[in-house]
Design a protein around this nucleic acid. Structure first.
Lengths: 349, 349
DNA sequence: AATGTAAATGATTGCGCAACCATTTTGCAA
DNA sequence: TTGCAAAATGGTTGCGCAATCATTTACATT
């Protein structure tokens, strides 16, 4: 006894197979009595639609393909959570591909996912190969790029400007009174490079960019690597008094290394992270970080692909980012009232 | 111009469609010249197999279905990474279902993934509904349960004893000299309950279980929650001098709260985490945690399901766990030589 | 060259469903 | 009651591929 098919359900309900199919796919198009009969038969037989047969007959799938660079990076699990939420309860299923930050692997994987055509595709970043873009063009399905912004998305792009976010954070470090600001980066993907660009431009504007201010590696980032990179940075750049980190793991690693070295944060060293994944707001001291709308990016991407009329969405959505200023960069507490009071006292003498 | 099919490739290569199919699926069964012709035609036409048609014709899929309780919990991303590695380069693809810790949701999702039958199924834990087990039985495909051990797995089970791991950790706290040991738990799934059982049994054996020693919640755990739960625990249990945490996030939260309260770790408060996800070995002080073989569990599960002869694997694999003792519980440095020396001196007087 | 055997290749069929079009039934106005 | 439009239901076909069995070819042995 194998799995029941539409024919079996139809026999049970006393109707034809195609009618059962219709009753299940478009319940609003059939009579109430039929729907009840079919539902009973389905329940009685334990009928489950065969996804492959459906896909083959309709020559399109119900799956949303998501290509992400890494499953271990918490950034992408936040994005995935957003997508998952948008798809919950819909008829769409998620197909996840792990590219390992390699555009060629992305192309290879995507090719295998593109026949038959998926209901939608979500890609991280804008660095797809030409072949990838051609494939997507040929398939014609809707494509949402995420994590970044650009002027010419394939169909839609949802993200924020990493360069702008990094510039804002670096300007904050300058404003907070730090003089010798360094950059620590790992896993230098294109968006990390953009952050580095933003970092440099903010410092160059004030003529404050030190030649040894940048310490980067392509190894995947983690807390221990943050400590190691900080050691390397201060080795080359002993006057360094603040660090902009490419992500929160590195920032925590810097914080711990400072604690080990007896460097006070924020007085001797200022620390800023990126992505604000949770711990930064709880650590001692709390760590300044750039809050990025990861889950919102995922949810919006999922929403666009599962709506009937995605055309109404803007092709480029910049969700922005917010700098969450915390104790790790509160070096000077500017208080104009207090300063004025002290000035008055000074004059009184 | 739609996508090329096997017929198109066959026409291009001057052979029949079925021969092309064979050349692609079982290249060792055809002549070298045919293989070359077919490969050329495939490349020329950009042929990509239609997964649905293949699945429908063979009435079985190439997908490994994995049901995990949560995508945001780092524990499961480690497991997924292991599975992903095992599947890399094989013909199998991963289909991930997010159950949200709900056996009924697991059943619902799994049902939709089970037609047509997947090549294999990976399930977290042993708390499947009866209906789920029946479905799996009917499908007949290989099933690997993970994260736990038990005596009667569906097919295979790979994990470790949470009760034993927690008992060992708690005994360590006792040995380290802590007198009033508390438990902090969040997201109390069945495995967390087992850890609580292990915790209690270790303390009861020494008659050291305090009535207010346990603080648990069903909210998903994070660092901030760890701080809050610690506050709650010491509110009820002021003498508390050590905490066994259900996971590392909570342990870090406890550490930070101790720092905020000016409680020294490990002298005033001992802290032990669970899973050893990375930060615990880098923080200041480093935090004792239970190292669990998450990635190995995933890899082995993937391996079993993708091998031709999975039968050769033991049905129950206990990969064990290791207590990583770090600074957060080094309260007393026991040194028997030193003690004996002091005893001798005492006797000499 | 004849025969036998293994290797290589081909033809037919059906997997389960949905698109498309055809037919039947229902509801309602005249 | 009849007629007719709309609603409801059914029949046929093919999606692209693999299982199964059938046939052809290559090659060794005598």
């Amino acid at each position: 006894m194998s799995k029941p098919t539409l024919v079996d359900v139809g026999r049970e309900a006393g109707v034809s197979a195609i009618t059962v199919s219709r009753a299940l796919r478009s319940p609003e198009k059939v009579s109430d009595s039929l729907r009840a009969k079919v539902d009973n038969a389905v329940r009685k037989l334990g009928y489950v639609p065969n996804q492959s047969a459906s896909t083959l007959a309709a020559s399109k799938t119900n799956s949303i393909v998501v290509m992400i660079p890494s499953t271990s990076n918490n950034v992408f699990s936040d994005v995935l959570r957003g997508i998952d939420e948008a798809l919950k309860g819909s008829r769409f299923t998620l197909q996840i591909g792990n590219t390992g930050y390699d555009p060629l692997e992305e192309e290879r994987l995507l090719r295998s996912f593109l026949n038959p055509a998926p209901a939608g595709v979500i890609l991280a970043g804008i660095e797809q190969t030409d072949a990838t873009k051609q494939m997507l063009q040929a398939v014609g399905g809707p494509v949402v790029q995420i994590m970044d912004v650009c002027s010419n998305p394939i169909d839609w792009i949802i993200g924020f400007s990493h360069e702008q976010a990094a510039r804002t954070a670096t300007e904050h470090l300058i404003t907070a009174g730090y003089q010798n600001i360094g950059f620590i980066g790992a896993q230098m993907d294109p968006r990390s490079q953009q952050r580095l660009t933003g970092f440099k431009s903010a410092l160059q504007a004030k003529d404050m960019l030190h030649q040894d201010a940048v310490a980067v590696t392509n190894r995947p980032s983690d807390v221990g690597l943050g400590s190691a990179m900080f050691s390397r940075l201060v080795g080359n750049f002993p006057d360094c008094d603040a660090v902009f980190c490419n992500n929160d793991d590195l920032a925590l690693g810097v914080l711990f290394e400072c604690q080990r070295r007896g460097l006070s944060v924020p007085d001797q060293i200022g620390i800023c992270g990126f992505n604000d994944l949770g711990i930064t707001s709880q650590s001692v001291p709390t760590v300044t970080s750039v809050t990025t709308p990861l889950k919102e990016i995922g949810r919006l991407a999922g929403e666009i692909l599962t709506k009937d009329r995605p055309v109404s969405y803007q092709p480029v959505v910049d969700l922005g980012s917010i700098l969450a200023i915390r104790d790790s960069t509160r070096r000077y507490q500017f208080d104009n009232q207090d300063i004025n009071r002290r000035l008055s006292k000074l004059r009184a003498n």
